[in-house]
Design a binder for these strands. Structure first.
Length: 279
DNA sequence: GGTGGACCTGGCTA
DNA sequence: CTAGCCAGGTCCA
């Protein structure tokens, strides 16, 4: 059954799903296949509507709406912020939304992402899901749900290695154990502020300032989170005149201070713009 | 508190 | 085809 959401905000699925914030979406014949609220579905844009079809389980409209953060008015954010490069990036990448992904999947995905590259990250996550996830079928596409913490704790080191996790395998295992043993619900951090959430995320092995800020901006709605990766660092030095030697944390703080309340959303535009157009 | 190396591994490019 | 470089960083000394 087809579901429709009328769009008031601009939404570009290609840019939103393939700008390096999510790693598991697949495109086929104008449909984008993936998981929202842990259920397999497909999406497309048609006549200013976001259309989606679920596989087995129903996905509520507000979950899809929320996944793309459609309640946030990007026009206001960028119009109220007078900065040349941000404006250029915004115009060039209109419709790119910062996603609100599942925090657990996001945490593990970004631990895996450290010092790696997107094709490899996607492949590793895919192998993990294929091994443990629940299998869904929609049309001729197969999807595997993201495994729970307790499922991951059951894996052996050699299995982790076979997914291509490298040294990150230990981090993923340990983090899963901590979450499982302490019955931690990452969704509780929707109600905590940025600083407390950051402090807590940093206690997990394999989670440093960059990964923590990714989890905060791409899943926990902390819109002032500001991940400083290689690209953003280059951008801050080359385009905003920061001293190369400034520490990563101070670069992050500078970004949050300069770009303001929605610095994380602006960051994502600048990040993708820099990577795509301005090597 | 801040700094410099080491680090699994596969994709990518010469 | 193969070598060598590089990648959405983190940890530890």
């Amino acid at each position: 059954m087809m579901n429709k959401i009328i769009l008031k905000e601009k939404l570009d699925l290609e840019l939103s799903l393939f700008s390096g914030q999510a790693f598991r979406w697949k495109k086929k014949l104008n449909w984008y296949y993936g998981f929202i609220d842990n259920k397999f579905l497909k999406l497309r844009i048609k006549n200013n509507c976001l259309e989606y079809v679920c596989s087995d389980d129903w996905v509520a409209q507000d979950k899809v709406y929320d996944y793309f953060g459609l309640g946030i008015k990007y026009n206001e954010i960028f119009e109220n912020f007078d900065d040349e490069l941000s404006t250029v990036a915004y115009k060039k990448l209109q419709g790119m939304r910062v996603l609100n992904q599942d925090p657990w999947e996001c945490l593990i995905s970004f631990i895996i992402s450290a010092w790696s590259n997107v094709p490899k990250i996607s492949n590793t996550i895919h192998l993990l899901c294929q091994k443990l996830g629940y299998k869904y079928i929609l049309d001729d596409m197969v999807g595997y749900s993201f495994p729970s913490p307790i499922q991951i704790t059951g894996l052996t080191e050699s299995e982790m290695k076979s997914f291509g996790m490298g040294y990150r395998g230990q981090y993923v295992l340990k983090t899963s154990k901590i979450i499982e043993e302490n019955k931690i619900l990452l969704s509780d951090f929707y109600n905590e502020d940025y600083f407390d959430s950051l402090k807590f995320l940093l206690t997990f092995p394999g989670v440093g300032d960059k990964v923590a800020n990714c989890v905060l901006i791409y899943s926990l709605k902390k819109y002032n989170a500001f991940p400083v990766d290689l690209w953003v660092e280059r951008l801050l030095v080359e385009d905003y005149g920061l001293n190369k030697k400034m520490s990563l944390i101070n670069k992050r703080k500078w970004g949050q201070n300069y770009f303001g309340k929605y610095s994380g959303i602006i960051q994502h535009y600048l990040f993708h713009y820099k990577r795509k157009y301005n090597h």
